[in-house]
């Protein structure tokens, strides 16, 4: 028995290869990026240590770090809110058993499957003035065909956010659906007998119960949008001007186009810290709300939210 016990203790070795991989391709790069952010490096010669100069440069006059960060946050918020609202409504509809639910579920996830660069290139063409789909449709209803959506610096960020919502809503929907279907039917039946309307049931039963999942998915969406390079690069490459230049695009530009790896690393570090802060705050929220949700509804079942929480647990 003792031998078994020892053997099972040693099983943890099985996790080593993956941990080694993470150490090499996540931990080391993070440390290295932090180091590079303190250097001047053109990608060819040896990095030169220059202290916090990069940070002063990107935050100082002429540096546009804060503009980029604000833009990234705006993109992230608009996209995440869109995804969460539509995704939750779609999940609620499926969970309510609308006719054709199976079909809808398969179709609504479809945009997530299409490669992001394909979606990007498709939508760029769809938003072109005079030749694109969006203006074609607007023209059909008499609203003009010359809107240059992506050339308009005020509209471009929202157009790209819209495409993000188009792509990512299916993902949020599926996870929300899992959480909603974990709510016992009896609760709804009881509520219905009490004469609660559909809306009332949605707001006072479904939403409170799935709140931790909702927060988790929102956190994931925020992380995803911080990785939104492929979509932006496929659609606008950050333009017009800098109006869609979110953080990963700016880092790519600085590093691989301008050959300014030090400054790019500094920007990446700021982005990473920001995201880490958001994660910590939201994880706290997820934990506390899953606790209160349990107390309030008294119906928390281990499995109802555990799955989605798996992604959020442990971020502290």
């Amino acid at each position: 028995m003792l031998r078994t016990h020892l053997r099972r203790r040693l099983l943890v070795i099985g996790a080593l290869p993956a941990v080694a991989g993470i150490a090499l391709l996540v931990a080391y790069p993070v440390v290295r990026t932090v180091y590079l952010s303190l250097t001047s490096w053109d990608g060819a010669s040896a990095p030169k240590f220059i202290g916090t100069t990069n940070f002063r440069d990107i935050t100082g006059q002429g540096g546009d770090l804060w503009a980029t960060v604000l833009r990234t946050i705006r993109f992230s918020l608009v996209a995440t809110i869109g995804v969460m609202v539509i995704g939750t409504l779609l999940a609620a509809a499926l969970s309510a058993g609308i006719p054709g639910a199976r079909f809808f579920r398969v179709v609504w996830f479809l945009p997530m499957v299409v490669p992001v660069s394909v979606s990007g290139v498709y939508w760029v063409n769809a938003f072109q003035p005079t030749t694109g789909l969006s203006n074609y449709l607007l023209g059909k209803v008499g609203l003009g065909t010359t809107h240059a959506w992506l050339a308009d610096p005020h509209a471009a960020l929202y157009v790209t956010s819209f495409v993000w919502v188009w792509i990512s809503t299916g993902f949020a929907m599926i996870i929300m659906l899992g959480a909603m279907n974990g709510v016992p039917v009896e609760i709804y039946e009881a509520a219905e007998m009490d004469g609660c309307s559909v809306l009332r049931r949605f707001f006072s039963i479904t939403l409170p119960v799935v709140r931790p999942t909702l927060a988790t998915v929102a956190l994931l969406e925020i992380i995803f949008t911080f990785n939104g390079f492929t979509l932006i690069w496929a659609m606008t490459q950050g333009g017009p001007g800098t109006s869609t230049q979110i953080l990963p695009v700016e880092v790519y530009r600085q590093a691989f186009i301008n050959g300014n790896y030090g400054a790019a690393s500094a920007q990446a570090v700021v982005g990473g810290v920001l995201l880490l802060l958001v994660s910590v705050v939201m994880t706290r929220f997820i934990r506390s709300s899953s606790g209160s949700g349990r107390a309030r509804a008294g119906l928390f079942r281990r499995r109802a939210n555990r799955s989605a929480l798996a992604a959020g647990q442990g971020i502290t």
């Binding site: 938003f127 959506w149 050339a151 333009g239 017009p240």
Partner: peptide, 20 residues
């Protein structure tokens, strides 16, 4: 051409070649 800022060289060229 409208949408100039959102189009690249080849897109503009394709519009020209298409007679637009």
């Amino acid at each position: 051409q409208s949408g100039m800022l959102s189009q690249d060289y080849t897109q503009a060229e394709a519009l020209f070649a298409a007679g637009k």
